[in-house]
Amino acid sequence: MHARRRTVLTAGAAGAAGLVAACGSSGDEDGDGDRSTAAAPETSRAAKPSTRAGAASADGSVPGGEALAKTSDIPVGGGKVFAEQEVVVTQPKEGEFKGFSAICTHMGCTVAEVSDGTINCPCHGSRYSITDAAVVAGPAPQPLAAERITVTGDTIRLG
């Protein structure tokens, strides 16, 4: 009886160690950089290979980037998550738009909402500032990566 319990406890400890290791993972096992969780929020998807329409050209620009929203769709002091594009756009101050990765740096969940000045992940409660994507509440270890967006007239585009 005790031997079985030890086996289960040992197996449970090994599983827990694996989970802890997964929490510390950057999510980029193949080294291609697609899911960067680098501390520098200046990282931009536009400078990386993309499978989306409007992939980066040799100079890093995205010709005719994907239209995400109208500026009026993004509330001042808030933002909007574009889950399909894995991007969140915020408007910290009137007329100032920011783009960030919508992938939480804790375990790779997609953030779900923007409210009360933070970008919120539903999985484990991480929250990020709408101004610079800095971690406001963990367990996220790093800020969200910046995403390059452009505003032309009243249209916000990815890239």
Rank of each mutant, 00 (worst) to 15 (best):
G95Y: 02
C104A: 12
E113C: 15
G31T: 07
P63S: 10
A13H: 09
E96V: 04
V135S: 06
A146C: 12
P143G: 07
A13T: 12
R35D: 02
A38W: 06
A145G: 11
Q91L: 00
S72K: 07
V89H: 01
E84T: 01
T10F: 15
A145F: 01
R5T: 10
E96R: 02
D73K: 10
E147F: 08
A133M: 05
S126V: 07
S36M: 02
D59H: 01
G77R: 02
T10P: 10
T37A: 05
T150K: 04
Q91W: 00
Q142G: 15
P41W: 09
V136Y: 04
M107N: 06
K98S: 01
G65M: 00
G27P: 09
G153R: 08
T71I: 05
S57A: 14
G108R: 01
T105V: 06
R157V: 01
G60M: 00
V81N: 01
G125P: 01
K70T: 07
T110Q: 08
R45A: 13
A137Q: 14
T37E: 04
V62H: 08
N120A: 15
R127N: 09
S115K: 15
V89T: 08
V76K: 02
T150Y: 02
G79H: 00
C104V: 11
V89M: 04
P49F: 12
S25V: 14
K70S: 08
A55S: 11
S126I: 08
V87Y: 00
V87W: 00
E29R: 15
S101H: 12
A58N: 12
K48E: 12
A14G: 10
G159W: 02
E147L: 08
E42A: 13
V76F: 00
A39H: 14
A137E: 14
D34K: 12
A46N: 01
A39K: 14
L68S: 03
A56Q: 07
A21D: 15
P92S: 14
A134S: 13
R148N: 05
T155N: 11
S115Y: 11
A83F: 09
S57H: 07
E113R: 14
S26A: 15
G77N: 03
A17F: 15
F97M: 03
A16Y: 10
T110K: 13
T105C: 04
T51C: 09
S57M: 10
T43M: 11
I103M: 13
P141T: 13
G159Q: 03
C23S: 11
R6T: 10
V151T: 02
D116P: 01
A133E: 03
P143W: 01
A11P: 12
V81Y: 00
E42F: 05
S36A: 11
G159I: 03
M107G: 09
V76Q: 02
Q91H: 01
A14D: 06
V76N: 01
H2Y: 04
A47R: 08
C23P: 05
R35H: 09
R127F: 05
R127K: 13
E96I: 00
A13I: 07
G138L: 11
P75Q: 03
A55E: 05
